[in-house]
Computed example of a mutant assay.
Amino acid sequence: MRYFDRRFYWGLLHPRLWGTWLAIGVLFLFGVTPAVIRDPFARALSRLVLRIAKKPIKVARANIRACFPEKSDVEVEALIRENVAQFVVILIAQAELLFRSKEHLRRRVQINGFENVKSARDAGQAIIFIMPHVWGIDYAGLRLNLELPMVTMAKAHRNELFNWFSNRIRSRLGGRVYMREAGLRVLITEMKQGNSFFYLPDEDLGPDQSVFAPLFATTKATLPVVGRLAAAGKARVMPVSIGYNDKSHQFVLTVLAPIEASNMAGKENEALALNKAVEEVITAYPEQYMWFLKFLRTRPEGEDSIYN
């Protein structure tokens, strides 16, 4: 089967997975806890995460300094602290996506710019939503799946129970989750059937077929494949931002205007357009981007790694 099988199987009860079951149970308890209580607890817990997550924080610090060299050390550390806090706030709430009602999800995630989606759907087009790795991405995917048919593609986790749990969440509303091994052809087939999906253009997939393009104050290797996918599936390409508001305890999801096909003509232009979209989405909520990812691993020839 090319897409994730969301059915339960007895192997998930193996004793080596009992620790994961315990963690999922804790997440379920947090999922039923009101956000007004859960969020302050998460912020307190984030102080512990700051002390123990040394390696990820080192990567985050390198990424932020590469992208924003104008920031002072004080500003960099403040951004990291808030980034970790937002990570914990969103992580411990995520089980609610599996069992809370559709009405609850609508209340939790406010949508702006949906007229852009409606315009494409009225024209019979699928949509490739451009969203880099942000903490609230699963909230964005499920909230949009309430309004239109969606599929997605994910990398399998080593822990099969966590793999089952996370993909049960993503496919809860009927959207299929394809493993990466399925390839891009399945996405073209899905688009031709009217299904939309998220594409995450910020991942560093190595130098092969990638193009270097500016990203903030640095340069990033970007895979220019979205233009061809959109053309093959007759789809529109729209960036999406999502950020959590601590005061209202809601996410704000904004669908931005479509990227013009002419702006993605040619690999260099497409890489530039994709990185500009990534910049726009990150700038909306810089404290909620996954800065711990090594998305700047591939460097231009002769340039040293920023992670040394």
Rank of each mutant, 00 (worst) to 15 (best):
L27P: 06
K58H: 14
F30I: 07
E75C: 08
G31A: 02
R65K: 14
V49M: 08
L48R: 11
I52L: 11
P34E: 06
E70S: 15
A23T: 08
V36C: 12
K55V: 10
D39G: 12
S46I: 09
F30H: 04
V32C: 08
L45H: 01
K55G: 10
F28E: 13
G31N: 03
Y9H: 14
E70G: 15
A44K: 13
K58V: 11
T20G: 01
G31K: 04
A78D: 06
A53V: 08
E77M: 05
I52P: 03
T33L: 09
L45Q: 02
Y9I: 10
R65C: 09
K55L: 12
K55W: 11
K55I: 09
A53Y: 10
L45E: 04
F41Y: 00
G19S: 10
G25M: 03
H14V: 06
G31E: 04
G31W: 03
R43P: 12
E77S: 06
R51W: 15
P40V: 00
R51H: 13
R81D: 13
R16L: 13
A60K: 02
R38P: 03
L45M: 06
I24G: 03
G19Q: 06
L50Y: 12
G25E: 08
E77H: 05
Y9G: 08
T20R: 01
E70Y: 15
A42C: 00
A60L: 02
Y9N: 12
F28R: 14
K58C: 11
T33K: 00
P69G: 05
L79E: 03
V36N: 11
K55A: 13
A44G: 12
R38F: 02
V76S: 02
K71Q: 14
I80C: 02
E75A: 09
A66D: 08
A53L: 05
K71C: 07
S46W: 03
F28W: 15
N63G: 01
S72N: 07
R47V: 13
L12I: 05
K54V: 12
V32G: 08
R61A: 01
I57D: 01
F28S: 10
V32E: 10
L13A: 00
L79V: 03
L22V: 06
D73W: 12
A66V: 11
N63M: 01
V76F: 09
G31I: 09
G31Q: 03
I37G: 02
N63I: 03
S72W: 04
K55N: 13
G19F: 09
I37K: 08
V32D: 11
H14W: 15
P40T: 02
W21K: 00
S72D: 06
H14N: 14
R65L: 10
V59Y: 01
P34V: 07
R61D: 01
V49G: 06
V59M: 00
N63V: 02
G19K: 07
P40D: 00
